[in-house]
Design a protein around this nucleic acid. Structure first.
Lengths: 250, 250
DNA sequence: TATTCCGATAGTGAC
DNA sequence: GTCACTATCGGAATGAG
């Protein structure tokens, strides 16, 4: 019935090459340092994983996406080895990351519109025009349609698993074969995800000293309808597929 | 590597017929009442499960044996619906059960000798005579050999899962494909198993009011060498196979 | 707090 | 406390040549 979940793997990018790209650092390579290879030499990855890069950032598709669209923004700075809360104490870096995040959010929103706009009530007029099903005055600006950007989840984990600074940007659907454990869900649907817009954090922001475990032991709550699934992860997963279908139609 | 455990099933004895033999009682049939069918009409079971029966007892092979030999003694009395601790407050029944248990133990011990005597150091001389490898004076009594009876586990569970009174008699090896959960092990290797010889229990015997759960949460201890396997049930299972081989050689 | 693999643990239903 | 089935929960290793 349910197909065996595929292990994400991209052309020319087996795990071995992740390590070998680090050359002399191979001996100290750890799974949690895997993102460093992208900021070190993004051009070394010929597959579709790197979305774009410039002097200061690399944007990649998450290797284990937890939603239908899930990308990471990687700042190319020595500060990236710090915990995000510490790194973002640097106002210059924070401003830079927030600006680049805004750009990447726009890109992701465009991708959502491309994928799901045809199902969306809010995008209907815009889609009809684009499809030539509705007349539109030449040169007149298209209706803006659905604001996909405002629905995105954007932020850093309070206790990241990967050592290099990375900002998550993802659709809210949580529909993915890589969504396998309850922690995958809670890490994006509790205060364990700290919105990039919330920085700089106040000195007394409770998220600075999270009881990390607590967030992950919370009941599983549907992000869209609020239904409580307690610890029934599989039932939540099935529900998320249904919510995804409805969400696209908004 | 490891074959899929087989589901015990005997010829002409599917579960449905267990129920149907109870006729009008079918509607109230519960899994936990399955043993009642044997005392009700032991002749209705043509397979090898019934070892013998008489007016007062039925001896059967356990459908889910937890050792290489594992039989049950079922008293044919209305008292069999009582908890064993209460049923054995009846001195007449207790004496009767203890006497029949002694007979069945002898039968089981004979079966162990038949199966494993050829491997046993204590049975070596006896086996050699029986095989004609050693001269023996005609009419002279054979050496008695190993006392297999004294190694048997014999008793009732402090909280039986089947509602009809049954006395377990089994080899100590705990080697069986039906030994699948840690509770299967602890139920025969802690005070949760109350020896039939210990009845009548003293009024203040602590086993009368067992913290049932406690016995099943104990560490897993090898019955033969005393090694502690904590909660590593699979490792214990592998170890039990090795101990079984050594035990046969005693 | 990543992944995967394996195994221990827990809840359900059986008629 | 039986069984079997499913799913949840938990620890350990993970690279490299």
């Amino acid at each position: 019935m349910s197909p065996k979940p595929k292990i994400p793997k991209e052309e020319g990018e087996p795990k071995k090459s992740l390590a070998s790209t680090r050359g002399a650092l191979t001996r100290s390579f750890k799974e949690r340092d895997g993102l460093g290879a992208y900021t070190h030499d993004p051009a070394a990855f010929p597959g579709s994983r790197v979305i774009y890069y410039n002097d200061d950032f690399v944007a990649i598709n998450d290797l284990y996406p937890k939603s239908t669209v899930h990308v990471l923004l990687l700042p190319r700075t020595p500060l990236s080895r710090l915990h995000p809360f510490d790194a973002f104490d640097n106002p210059s870096l924070l401003a830079s990351v927030q600006a680049e995040t805004a750009k990447l959010k726009h890109l992701v929103a465009t991708e959502l519109q491309r994928r799901y706009g045809r199902f969306s009530a809010q995008d209907r007029e815009r889609e009809a025009i684009l499809n030539g099903e509705k007349e539109w005055e030449a040169g007149k600006e298209l209706p803006v349609g659905r604001d996909w950007e405002k629905e995105l989840l954007v932020g850093v984990h309070a206790h990241p698993s990967m050592n290099d600074l990375h900002v998550h940007i993802l659709a809210p659907d949580m529909v993915s074969e890589c969504m396998r454990h309850r922690k995958h869900y809670t890490s994006f649907n509790t205060p364990f995800l700290v919105d990039i817009a919330d920085f700089p954090l106040a000195k007394d922001d409770p998220r600075r000293h999270p009881r990390n475990a607590e967030y992950h032991q919370r009941d599983l709550i549907c992000w869209r309808c609020g239904k409580n699934f307690l610890n029934k992860f599989k039932q939540l997963k099935e529900h998320l597929v249904e919510e995804f279908e409805e969400w696209k139609k908004e």
